[in-house]
Write a protein that binds this DNA or RNA. Structure first.
Lengths: 143, 143
DNA sequence: TATTGTTATACTCTATAACTATA
DNA sequence: TATAGTTATAGAGTATAACAATA
């Protein structure tokens, strides 16, 4: 039975999902961030200053939602709101020095996590190919 | 450089996490359930009727939270509250016939998802071993 | 007319704390 | 005293809809 072979592995994959979520929430909490706020800040870290509209599109979330996330990030000192230089409707959101520092720390922890998970894996290439296979299947299914 | 090898795979693993979350939210929504409510119902499907206290422990969530989730599931016809036969403080939560039907459907979809993800994977055993490795690393890191 | 971001409102999930009814 | 579940309260994240300012 194929099912007997595959279902336990799906269980493990879902367990990995749960643990990664828990780990992310925990680690980000120590940095003073929630997962949605960290996602927004991470976007700024990669793309540079963005309008709230651009952030809403990137996070696939409503503009109203971005207002709330940015409010929180401004309050806690991770980002600033500045007027857009040419479009007076728009607001540019930028990382503060503190925000940029924390993003650097996130990047370091990201590398550490990759090392932890894969560093001593004996079948890394086969695992990586399998993961790519899974990703493509999911992308196709959700397209 | 080991980092160059591992980071993109972590990217893919996280992409899989995001897509699985999206897929779960979407599929459960079609069944009339949110992820937390489905988790609670799934527990009842596996364990049979449980007290709210037992559900709170199983979901690692406060008793107050269970009250809210059960309220929603009662309103939408998935579960019932009944007095505990021997402990008059406690409430037994059970799946309705409709709730049980939906759990059967969830189980079918679970098998389908396992088939979709792994059914035609050429390196399934190596992938499964790699996933187990990742799971153990995460469990150890979070213990 | 269309777009940007806001206010207004509401829902879900989460938490703590105080309380009632029972054990 | 301890436990089960509730009410009271609060906060984060999400959504839609109406609106003001600007393009």
């Amino acid at each position: 039975m194929v099912k007997r072979l595959h279902e336990p592995v799906l269980d493990q994959l879902l367990a990995v999902v749960l643990l990664l979520n828990a780990d992310a929430t925990e680690s980000l909490g120590r940095l003073g961030l929630s997962v949605p706020r960290a996602t927004l800040a991470w976007q700024l870290h990669h793309e540079g200053p963005l309008t709230q509209r651009a952030l809403a599109d990137a996070l696939r979330v409503t503009p109203r939602n971005v207002t709330g996330l940015v409010d929180g990030l401004v309050e806690t000192g991770f980002v600033t709101r500045e007027p857009h230089p040419t479009d007076r409707r728009a607001t540019l959101v930028s990382l503060t020095a503190h925000g940029a520092d924390v993003m650097e720390e996130m990047a370091r922890q990201y590398v550490e996590l990759a090392e932890l998970l894969f560093g001593d894996m004996t079948e890394f290439p086969a695992f990586a190919r399998g993961l790519e296979h899974v990703l493509h299947k999911l992308q196709a299914a959700l397209a």
